[in-house]
Design a binder for these strands. Structure first.
Length: 265
DNA sequence: TCTTTATGGTGAG
DNA sequence: TCACCCTAAAGAT
């Protein structure tokens, strides 16, 4: 279940495992048989991530994958399991394999088409240190609640439902605040916090947003599930920082969580 | 053995 | 705003 950090991590791992050599590609499920045939035996030049999108370059052809909500793309170095009947795509070489299941998007496109995909996305904090102004400008154009705007991939690429609530908590911003009402400082805080949290998530391989001091822990490995985040899925529980009861509400057709003490309206 | 849920996104109305 | 797509694991019965 991926936000941007997961996708970038996958791109790095797949690049390390497969780039620079021919790969075998097949579709046990059958639904991607033609696409797999188009890249089978070809040299993978590289794997990249932009926001929540994955791109695998094979000359002028690009394998474009988006995992959606339920997609997975685990890889194996040894003890490669049998693909399940739902495995859409297997990529392998002599020593490793990756099994794709449940993707929202899996298709072979041209480099121009791939460029059009990324052009429609907002800046990705994991790729660009120069996206802050573009992000700030987009906020200024929107009157929708900031919690809804943070999920719009045309505004900022890679944020999902966990990070949107956690980032708003960390910046002390109430989720229903209209985006264009935010000060420049608060917009800066959102951009910097998004980048810092995505980079941390990329490094850890999981989303951990709490400062250890706020939960009285020494190491991140000591944290229980409930202690890794400030608000996400914590409605009814006391805030790690101020003790107020965390609330949940539907914002932008999905649940958002916030602390009424730390994020006043 | 069910039903539910999930860190996402699209297209129709 | 809603139905819908895709899969797997967790939770309920």
């Amino acid at each position: 279940m991926p936000e941007g950090h997961t996708i970038h991590r996958l791109a790095r791992r797949h690049h390390a495992l497969f780039a620079g050599a021919p790969v075998a590609a097949s579709s046990p499920q059958g639904r991607f048989a033609a696409g797999a045939a188009a890249i089978d035996g070809r040299v993978l030049e590289g794997a990249d991530a932009y926001g929540k999108h994955l791109f695998y370059r094979f000359g002028d052809d690009v394998l474009h994958v988006h995992l959606g909500l339920i997609g997975r793309f685990p890889s194996y170095i040894r003890d490669v399991p049998e693909p399940t009947p739902a495995t859409r795509l297997v990529i392998s070489n002599g020593s490793a394999a990756a099994h794709l299941s449940g993707p929202m998007t899996c298709r072979v496109i041209t480099t121009d088409e791939a460029a059009a995909v990324t052009a429609a996305l907002g800046p990705d904090p994991l790729r660009s240190r120069g996206g802050r102004r573009e992000f700030a400008a987009a906020l200024g154009r929107r009157r929708a609640p900031i919690a809804a705007v943070l999920l719009d991939q045309a505004v900022i690429a890679g944020i999902g439902n966990v990070y949107r609530s956690e980032i708003l908590f960390l910046c002390g911003i109430h989720p229903t605040t209209p985006a264009r009402n935010l000060s420049d400082d608060r917009g800066d805080c959102l951009w910097r916090t998004a980048g810092a949290q995505l980079r941390l998530g990329l490094r850890l391989g999981r989303i951990v947003t709490v400062r250890l001091g706020d939960v009285g822990a020494r190491r991140r490995g000591d944290l229980d599930e409930d202690e890794r985040r400030y608000v996400y899925h914590r409605d009814g529980l006391p805030c790690h920082r101020c003790g107020s009861i965390v609330r949940r509400g539907d914002i932008g057709a999905r649940s958002a969580w916030w602390c009424p003490g730390c994020q006043p309206e």
